[in-house]
């Protein structure tokens, strides 16, 4: 009962800070403290947003961005987990790949976007590659650390039951390091989204990133902000979905 009201209170408190920012922003606009052309009031932006949704114009770019992101993110997650597990369980693969990973990892992936345009041209392949490059490293590193950090007791348990190497990986190592893998995937989610938007801005074909830059150039500031709101909703929505998946997959988190 008290725990429930506690949750209720914290979620209410969480709503409070954005509400305050929005009200200050709204009042500042209404009082004429800020230039309404450069920074429209939230209420005006919301109207543009409603129009966007009502005439369906929001959906093609939104789905375009989501599709690019999801494909890239899925590839990055699978690659990151596979390479992370391989490096953590094989000394040979660790020796082989560790230097390469350490060279590539610290490069800000945004710097590679123009390079990729050069080699792969402007298109979906490039955009997906950008997301993969941004998202793969956090997943890889977390997976590696998760597997290396597993308790020896767990692995010895598997050995005493004569479990094959493959079965040890799939039925023990992977599920046991899932909390760490998901922590990496959470970081990758944010990074991947940043990079897909940036790539869309630079490629100038379609998607939310392209809309934002295009409307800024056309000086349709209110519409531009409406798209930024769409982006906020997308990011928030993906994070909430991630939380839900995480809670379903690792209910034992923090309990062992």
């Amino acid at each position: 009962m008290s725990q429930r009201s506690e949750v209720y209170r914290t979620s209410l408190l969480g709503l409070l800070s954005p509400a305050i920012v929005l009200s200050v922003w709204e009042s500042a606009g209404a009082l004429g403290w800020i230039n309404p052309i450069l920074l429209p009031r939230p209420s005006q932006i919301v109207w543009s947003l409603v129009e966007l949704v009502a005439d369906g114009a929001v959906f093609p770019p939104l789905l375009y961005t989501i599709a690019l992101f999801v494909v890239g993110y899925a590839i990055a997650s699978i690659l990151g987990i596979a390479i992370g597990v391989a490096m953590a369980t094989s000394e040979t693969l660790y020796g082989l790949l560790e230097p390469l990973v350490e060279i590539l990892r610290p490069i800000p992936k945004s710097a590679l976007v123009p390079v990729l345009f050069l080699f792969l041209g402007i298109g979906k392949t490039t955009m997906i590659t950008v997301v993969v490059l941004a998202a793969v490293f956090p997943v890889l590193i977390s997976t590696f650390q998760g597997v290396r950090g597993l308790d020896p007791v767990l692995l010895e348990t598997a050995r005493t039951f004569q479990v094959s190497r493959m079965r040890t990986i799939f039925s023990i190592i992977l599920p046991a390091s899932l909390p760490m893998i998901l922590a990496g995937m959470r970081v990758a989610l944010g990074l991947g989204l940043v990079l897909v938007i940036l790539a869309e801005m630079l490629a100038g074909e379609d998607g939310i990133g392209f809309r934002i830059l295009d409307l800024q150039r056309a000086f349709q500031i209110r519409e531009m902000f409406a798209w930024i709101f769409v982006l906020v909703a997308l990011g928030g929505g993906l994070m909430m979905l991630f939380d839900l998946i995480e809670r379903t997959l690792v209910p034992w988190r923090g309990k062992t």
Binding site: D151, V153, L154, E156, T157, R159, T160, F161, Q162, I172, P175, A176, L178, V250, W252, K255, T256
Partner: peptide, 29 residues
């Protein structure tokens, strides 16, 4: 190598059990 029929009961039982499996699935392992 660990031979079949030799079973090890660890002091750290919590770490030896599989948290993602139900009790019966742990026993089934």
């Amino acid at each position: 190598d660990p031979p079949p029929g030799v079973v090890y009961l660890f002091q750290q039982y919590a770490k030896s059990l599989f948290a993602w499996r139900t009790v019966i699935d742990n026993v089934m392992f």
